[in-house]
Amino acid sequence: MKILYVNTLFPPDVGGGAELSLAMLAAGQMVKGNEVLVAATTDRNEVVDEVIADVPVVRLPLHNIYWPHSEKGPSTLRRLAWHARDIDNSAMAESLTGVVQKFNPDVISFHNLAGFSASAWRVAKQLEKPAVQVLHDYYNLCPRSQLFRNERNCETPCQQCSIFRIGRAKASNQVDAVVGASQAVLDAHLRNGLFANVQARRVINNARDYATPGRATYPATAQTFGFIGTVAPWKGVGLVLEAFSQLQTKPGMQATRIVIAGGGEESYLNELKTRYASEQVVFLGKVKPDEFFEQVDVSVVPSLWHDPLPGVVFESMIFGVPVIGSRRGGIPEMISNDGNGLLFEPDQAGDLEAAMHKLASTPGLLARYGNQAHRDSARYSDTGRVIDAYYRLYEEIIAA
């Protein structure tokens, strides 16, 4: 089988978990004996053909007014102009058409299409190639990819988003299958009218190729809480730091500590460091996941936005670290409340603090959650499950 993958970026260019998941999937399909090509965008003015970790990649020049993955703080006018062109970018459609005609795939798997625009779907339809759209975020509904604005979630796209997504719902019906990395992200698109006529719908959770034995021992109660990821307001970093500061006022909680790993805008980082300055609050900067998990007893994922399927949740579980997670997006699909971790409601005052206090004050609970989290993580470290599920879907839509 010849499979063409289309995604905005591909390693070493990484915008998030989508690129890591795609790299794993492409390499896995090659191991199964399939012929694979990945089409991505580049800031260069020429087509770049290369091989990354044995995976053939063609990087197409981005035909838009700037390269969004390096330019810091473009003006509002430039940003609006970029997204206006990304409604339906005919120049990128022409470039992608050339790739499809040359490679002649049996199936096309679309992932993040920022830069390629919805015109990519039209290319598959016009060239009569079976196609699947994999949803990693909300870019098809919102240019910010988050459906989050002014510190609140958008239940439906706002007026500006609706303008920049004009015609996309109709265009989405040009694919033959749609896959959500979580039920939450799939449902959000269906609820807003996308992929309405697409009959093949699947939820295929991501996985990471980690193999860890979990933890041999746990302290009686949680002493160190941790956050790892982008340090940004919508990630709930301020919320967890505020909850921790309140936890510190409780009897017997003064020895607890929290570590914050990850990067973000310098102004926001400095604001947090100043507001929550304490010997018990440590900012690590960017560190590798294994270095982070060996330092913490509990991983807190306090997302305010509907995080589709944050990898930090299942990565924590794989390492035997229980998670306190918000009831947002795909997080509750991975965490069994009071089974392998705890869930909390971000809008309910004191809910996160209560969850942290429970793990910091109840002997034996940390070990019970941690051991169960590691057992439940098996599906998220099984990359073969993901590779096989996609292959079966490809076969289905090719046969149809």
Rank of each mutant, 00 (worst) to 15 (best):
V323D: 02
E294W: 07
P322I: 06
R327T: 14
E353A: 05
F293W: 08
S336V: 10
L365I: 12
P289S: 15
G370V: 03
S299K: 08
I335H: 07
L309R: 10
I335S: 04
A360P: 00
R368Q: 15
L366V: 12
M317I: 03
G320Q: 03
Y380F: 15
S316P: 02
V298T: 06
R375V: 15
I324M: 06
D307Y: 11
E333G: 06
L309V: 11
S316T: 08
D347Y: 14
V301T: 07
H374Q: 13
F319P: 01
A355V: 03
P363H: 13
M317R: 00
A389R: 04
T383K: 07
M334R: 07
F292D: 07
D388S: 14
I324Q: 00
F292P: 03
S316L: 02
F319H: 09
L352C: 09
A378Q: 13
H306K: 13
A355K: 06
G370A: 07
A378V: 13
R385C: 05
F314P: 00
E294V: 14
V298N: 01
S299V: 13
P332K: 05
I331G: 02
R368F: 11
P322G: 00
H374A: 09
E345M: 11
Q348P: 02
L366F: 09
D351I: 03
V313L: 12
L342W: 02
R328V: 11
P302Y: 11
H306Q: 15
D376G: 11
P363Y: 13
V298K: 01
G329Y: 01
I331R: 01
A349R: 15
V287L: 13
S303R: 06
G339H: 08
N337L: 07
M334F: 06
G364E: 09
P363N: 12
F293D: 07
S336C: 04
P308K: 07
P363W: 13
Y369M: 12
E353Q: 11
F292K: 01
Q348I: 14
L359W: 03
D376W: 07
L304R: 04
N340I: 10
V298M: 03
L366W: 06
Q372H: 15
Y380N: 10
D388I: 12
E294A: 14
D338Y: 14
A360E: 00
A355E: 01
A389H: 06
G325Y: 02
P363L: 12
N340R: 08
F292M: 09
D376R: 06
L309G: 05
D388P: 04
N371V: 15
S326K: 02
V287P: 10
V301Y: 05
D376Q: 10
I331N: 02
F344Q: 03
G364C: 09
Q348Y: 11
V313S: 05
S377Q: 11
N337D: 14
D382E: 08
V386C: 08
P322K: 01
Y380K: 12
A349H: 13
A355L: 04
T383H: 07
I324N: 00
L304T: 01
I387T: 11
E291N: 11
K358W: 00
F319K: 05
V298H: 00
I318A: 07
S316W: 02
P302K: 09
T362Y: 00
V386I: 13
G384D: 13
I335Q: 09
D297H: 03
A389G: 08
G320F: 01
L343H: 14
N340L: 10
Y380V: 09
G325D: 02
P332W: 03
G339N: 05
